[in-house]
Nucleic acid binder design. Structure first.
Lengths: 206, 206
DNA sequence: CGTACTTTTGAATCGCATCAAATCTGGTGG
DNA sequence: CCACCAGATTTGATGCGATTCAAAAGTACG
């Protein structure tokens, strides 16, 4: 893992090369725990590969997933608090960048460019996640697919950069339901599908 | 609407009284359009009452909701871009605070306290919305209810500050499904319900 | 060339949405 | 104080669509 190269390629991290001195690459195996709820915040993390999950466990033994993350920063809120609020564990063997929190906070305070990039990134993320919430509130598979193309695509065209199986997961559907609905919409002339390129035809008002 | 009092009561807005000179209260009726996609960003908005919706319309005539907002800031991303990216319309007669964007940006740049509060608020919002996404990905009504109590409540107890009907909406369920599932969980001894106070008993591991 | 994973199809089941309607509730005005 | 109304709450019946389980076919990769 060439951290220097990686940071140079990321528009946010590139604005603060000084952080290079306060970051490590760590490789973790499935089921390892990265942070425990209640621990003092020492690092902020960036997922390079694999998957981590933020989970809250109750004394009653139930466990709820608060976030799954496969790429980018997670737990951004740890920058503004002193303790972690949930456990983070490795769902799938992963590689992380681990930044020391104090230099990171200091960089946000002092480096205007870095800070603006950071704020732009989290507000963009917020917009995206809110759209996903609205999408998941739709009850039918077809509606979610159309919503996805309208909100994530350009001019009714989406280029999928993931497998359909993982897309199904993102849509809150089983992969079977997604496959079947895609086929139906294609048969009905609502979608034109060419490999990973999906075109929304839909010429009728709701 | 006593804007001054309102801002003094909000921990974020209270840190920047100077904004008082650049904010107006506006009352709008249902179906009015607040901003159009493509317009230059002139204001950031804060919902005091009612409901607004951010929607994206396609030329094909479909319309998807990107965000519903009943309280607080929406479209925070407009601070970091020059044009609005979607339409915003009034879903339910509402009252808004309308801040001029430039003084707002300037305050974020220059007022450290205000900026830190702002970042804390959007990261908190991000955490909350992500948890809601995970919740909406759950397929059963019971799972969503338990997830809600675990993630939004304290120690397995939640005090609802909304009607069950609107809670159902938030959970992505019909109100009928919510009522029925609450009753069933109560009968099964999983929940103890006293008015708006709901206690999660659940003493078994999944 | 074999293995792991995705894609695809089938059949059965179940839970939620939907439509309908009755009851309860808080708030308003007479 | 009561009549009334809008909205929330609750219960019932029905149907659809997504899940679930199962299995086959296709694909990528070492």
């Amino acid at each position: 893992m060439d951290i220097e190269q990686f940071m140079a390629d990321d528009p946010l991290l590139a604005t603060c090369p000084g952080l290079l001195e306060h970051v490590q690459y760590v490789a973790l195996r499935a089921d390892e725990t990265i942070v425990h709820a209640g621990q003092k915040v020492r690092h902020v993390f960036y997922v390079v590969s694999g998957e981590v999950r933020l989970v809250r466990r109750s004394r009653a033994g139930t466990e709820v997933v608060l976030q799954r993350c496969r790429q980018g920063f997670f737990s951004e809120a740890s920058l503004t608090v002193s303790q972690y609020h949930c456990d983070v564990l490795v769902a799938e063997e992963c590689g992380l960048l681990r930044f020391q929190v104090e230099p990171f906070r200091q960089a946000l305070d002092e480096n205007n460019l870095f800070r603006n990039q950071w704020m732009a990134r989290i507000t963009r993320e917020l917009r995206k996640v809110r759209a996903q919430c609205e999408r998941l509130s739709l009850h039918s598979a077809a509606d979610r697919i159309v919503h996805y193309i309208e909100s994530e695509g350009n001019e009714g065209v989406i280029e999928l950069v993931q497998t359909r199986k993982s897309w199904a997961l993102e849509l809150g559907l089983t992969h079977e339901a997604l496959y079947r609905t895609l086929k139906r919409l294609q048969d009905e002339g609502v979608l034109a599908i060419d490999k990973s390129r999906i075109h929304l035809i839909e010429m009728f008002k709701k």
